[in-house]
Nucleic acid binder design. Sequence first.
DNA 1: ATTTTTTGCAGAATAATATTCTGCATTATA
DNA 2: TATAATGCAGAATATTATTCTGCAAAAAAT
Lengths: 157, 157
Amino acid sequence: MKNDKNKPLDRIDIAILKALQNDGRMSNVDLAKAVNLSPSPCLERVRRLESEGYIEGYCARLNAAKLGQNMTAFIQVTLDRTTGDVFDLFKEKLVDIPHVAECHMVAGGFDYLVKLRISGMESYRDVLGQLVGLPGVAQTHTYVVIEPVKSDRGLPL
Amino acid sequence: MKNDKNKPLDRIDIAILKALQNDGRMSNVDLAKAVNLSPSPCLERVRRLESEGYIEGYCARLNAAKLGQNMTAFIQVTLDRTTGDVFDLFKEKLVDIPHVAECHMVAGGFDYLVKLRISGMESYRDVLGQLVGLPGVAQTHTYVVIEPVKSDRGLPL
DNA sequence: ATTTTTTGCAGAATAATATTCTGCATTATA
DNA sequence: TATAATGCAGAATATTATTCTGCAAAAAAT
């Protein structure tokens, strides 16, 4: 690659990322003020951060409760290791379930930690049904969230 | 409240939420096209969704790995129930730790499920140290994420 | 059923913003 | 020391946000 100008991020870049992480719809004019630049170089930097993959996208944060998804649950999933491709099969099917908000393969007493976003117990039963029907699932253990103490607001920069 | 016109969301509102969840920086002109409205009523609806709390904010999605936070871990925390306010004390201190990305109080075999976003093992040791030093913590159990299978991209609408 | 009121929309007008362009100053490179 | 490259500010232009007006459909009242 000739044009591989992936310079390390400077102080201003970090400030931009912080600001946009807090308010992704901030106008470029305001952003420029916040980081002590004029609008043009500020916009340049944002475009660079986007094209180089530091910023992957922008999204609206929605209120789950007001949209009928008040319940969160974590499910620990253990697979049986009889065939070699159980993991791939499981993942492939799992990611297509809309109520699966997150899924992580973990090291430890089980294989996958799945985070569910659902409207209530009926929905939970339904999704759990789909989950245990997935190929290779040996056992599951659910933890229902009683109180959300801290929710993800981005990286600590 | 006299002016409590919290009408239920219609088809267009949902379409707006979906679109902004996928691209929170979409221009109002494009959004209007996407939901088959002219810009003015479209903007009105967005403002209403914001002021009524359906949209809580906007944020940039950053690439954690490119910003030196490639490691994720989940920690199950159990508190000792000797005093009545252990939970409040614990929460209060915990939310201030920057590397704590999420924390949920759960029903089941332990009390809190904490999600950590860290740069590596050294950072993990450091944060775990802070965590076990928190008031009331009886025991912890860590699960390190080997592979992120699905990451949160918003609500299924 | 008809009037009145309200609601939500489109489209025009204006204000603000994004984006492009030019030239200057600073830093790196030769 | 000369030359190129980089990053910036500020102006110019294009695009977008926002406000305003009037119309039409739906809802409420008579």
